[in-house]
Nucleic acid binder design. Structure first.
Length: 438
RNA sequence: GUGGGUAUAGCUCAGUUGGUUAGAGCGCCAGAUUGUGGCUCUGGAGGCCGUGGGUUCGAGUCCCACUAUCCACCCCA
C-alpha cells in the first residue's frame, strides 16, 4: 500500500508558503498594489502562456536557454519569462484602444528554467509598473518612476534604502568616445565593481582586450565620487565629445531635479555611474534599489527606460520607462535576513464559535452570520471533539477570541466570549461581542 | 553550461576506527482533565538510513555509478 504513495514535493525553484507566510506575502503584495494604484496605474493581466514566436521575437541570449517551451498539438508555446515582453505585445496589439501615456501595473508569476539556487526561483512574482508613451515620453516620467519605487518601499515600512540611478547614454557615449565596441561586456564588468573590486575590474577589462589608456579612463570614470551635484560636475568636466554622452547628462539632471520635487528624500537616491543592469533593452535611465542594512540581498527592484518597447510587434514607436520588483526573491531574502518577524496569525478568523454539542449548531451558525454582517471574520467548529481540542484549534491558528454555545447561552440568548490571550471569559450579548472584538 | 558539497522519522539533526534490535528535540495522536486551551507529566504511531551495485564474516558508516538537492561561477529579479 505504502508503495503507492507518491512522495509529495514540488519542483525545485518553485516556492510555496505555509498559511502564516502566505498571509504575510499577500500583505506585501497588496501594499505594492495599493501604492501603484494610488499613483494612477491601471492593472492588466496577460496569459501565462504566449506563442513562442512572441516571446522569442527578440531572439538570442539567455532567454532562449531559460525559457520553458513546449508544443500542444501544432502550437508552439512558452511560459512568459518576464512581464515586459507580454506588455510590449499587449500594447502593440491593443494600441488603438489604449490611451497614452499608458500607465499600467502588472503583478504576476513568470518562469525561468534556471539552475536553482538560494534565493533564485524558476517561478516567481514580478511586480511591474511602467509608463508607455506614444511616439515620445517625457523624461520627467523617469523621475516619477523613481518616486514610485521610493513610495512603494516606504509604504512597505522600509526607511534605509537607496535607489541608485544612472543613464545608459552616459555609459554608451563614454565608451564610444574610447572606441570601445564590445560595450555590453564592459558594462557587465563595471557592474561587478562592488563584487570583485577595482583590481578585479581592471583585470577583466584588460582581458577583454581594452587598451591601458582606456582602462585608466574607465577607472577614473567609475571613481567619480561626491554628492549628485558633484558627480554631475565631474562628468561634465570629463569633456567627452559625444552627443549621446551630453544627452545622458542632461537627462540625469532632469531626473534628479524632478525626483526632489516628487518628494523623495535625498538619502534615498543617488547617482551611481557603475550600475548598468538590464542590458537587454534599457537605453536611458536605469535604476537599482538596495536595502542599506542588507547589501548582501542585492538589488530588490530594478528597471529603466527603453526607447522602443514594442519594435518587434508594431511599427509604432513606443518608448517607455518602468521598474520591476522581484517579489518572490524579496520575500525570501527578507525572511532569510530575519527581517520579517512574523507575528501575523495563520488565519484571518477573529472569532471561533464552539457549539458544545450538535444541538447548538443552529444557534452557532446564526451567531456567525450576525458577526459576519458586522464585518467580523468568524467560523464555527463543527467537528465532534473535546473542548480542549477545539480550543487548541484556536491556539494553533492564533484566533484571538472564542465563543461557547451551550444550554445556558441559548436559554439567555447570549454567548460566552473568551479572550484567548488573557483566558478571561464572560457571558455577554452579541452586541457586546461586536463591540469587544471590533 | 562549468566546478564543489550533501542525502538517516513529517521537520531540524546525532549516530564512535565498520559490530547486536537506528537515536534526540520539535511536531503529530492518546491519556492524566467528559463546559475550557497554552505549561507539565505519561504513553503511542511514524525509518527498505536517496536508488542500484561493490568491498567485507558483517555497511547508516568504506568504494563506484545513478538520482535528487544545496552552494559557487555564468546570468538574472
Amino acid at each position: 500500500m505504502s508503495k503507492d504513495i507518491v512522495k509529495p514535493s514540488t519542483l525545485p525553484g518553485f516556492l510555496e508558503l505555509l498559511p502564516q507566510d502566505q498571509i504575510l506575502f499577500n500583505e506585501i503584495k497588496d501594499s505594492i498594489r495599493n501604492t501603484y494604484e494610488k499613483h494612477g496605474f491601471i492593472p492588466i493581466d496577460t496569459p501565462l502562456i504566449e506563442k513562442s514566436e512572441i516571446l522569442l521575437a527578440k531572439g538570442g541570449g539567455e532567454t532562449e536557454k531559460q525559457i520553458y517551451r513546449f508544443t500542444k498539438g501544432d502550437t508552439d508555446m512558452a511560459l512568459r519569462f518576464d512581464l515586459t515582453v507580454p506588455l510590449a505585445r499587449y500594447v502593440a496589439q491593443h494600441f488603438s484602444e489604449l490611451t497614452f501615456p499608458f500607465r499600467r501595473y502588472h503583478i504576476g508569476k513568470v518562469y525561468r528554467g534556471e539552475k536553482s539556487q538560494r534565493g533564485r526561483f524558476r517561478e516567481f512574482y514580478q511586480c511591474d509598473v511602467d509608463i508607455i508613451g506614444n511616439g515620445k515620453l517625457n523624461v520627467i516620467y523617469d523621475a516619477e518612476i523613481l518616486s514610485i519605487i521610493y513610495y512603494t518601499f516606504k509604504n512597505l515600512g522600509f526607511e534605509n534604502f537607496t535607489i541608485k540611478i544612472n543613464n545608459r547614454k552616459i555609459l554608451n557615449g563614454f565608451f564610444s568616445s574610447l572606441g570601445i565596441t564590445n560595450s555590453v561586456e564592459v558594462l557587465r564588468t563595471i557592474d561587478k565593481l562592488e563584487k570583485i573590486g577595482e583590481k578585479g575590474v581592471i583585470d577583466e577589462l584588460i582581458n577583454l582586450g581594452l587598451s591601458r589608456d582606456a582602462v585608466t579612463k574607465i577607472l577614473k570614470f567609475i571613481q567619480i565620487r561626491g554628492n549628485d551635484e558633484e558627480k554631475l560636475q565631474s562628468l561634465k568636466s570629463l569633456n567627452i565629445e559625444s552627443q549621446i554622452f551630453q544627452e545622458g547628462i542632461k537627462e540625469l539632471i532632469t531626473v534628479t531635479n524632478y525626483t526632489k520635487i516628487f518628494g523623495v528624500p535625498e538619502k534615498n537616491y543617488t547617482i551611481d555611474l557603475t550600475i548598468a543592469r538590464g542590458l537587454d533593452y534599457y537605453t536611458g535611465t536605469v535604476y537599482e534599489t538596495f536595502l542599506d542594512d542588507y547589501p548582501e540581498i542585492g538589488s530588490v527592484c530594478s528597471g529603466g527606460r527603453y526607447e522602443n518597447l514594442a519594435e518587434y510587434y508594431t511599427t509604432q514607436k513606443l518608448p517607455g520607462v518602468g521598474v520591476s520588483i522581484g517579489l518572490t526573491r524579496l520575500f525570501y531574502q527578507l525572511k532569510e535576513a530575519g527581517l520579517l518577524e512574523n507575528d501575523t496569525p495563520s488565519t484571518f478568523t477573529k472569532v471561533l464559535i464552539i457549539p458544545m454539542d450538535e444541538s447548538f449548531n443552529g444557534y452557532a451558525i446564526k451567531i456567525a452570520n450576525t458577526l459576519r454582517e458586522n464585518n467580523i471574520i468568524s467560523e464555527v467548529y463543527f467537528e465532534d471533539a473535546k473542548i480542549g481540542k477545539k480550543l487548541n484549534y484556536a491556539n494553533n491558528l492564533n484566533i484571538p477570541y472564542t465563543i461557547f454555545i451551550g444550554e445556558e447561552e441559548v436559554k439567555n440568548q447570549m454567548v460566552s466570549l473568551k479572550n484567548m490571550k488573557t483566558g478571561s471569559q464572560e457571558l455577554v450579548t452579541i452586541d457586546d461581542v461586536i463591540k469587544t472584538v471590533k
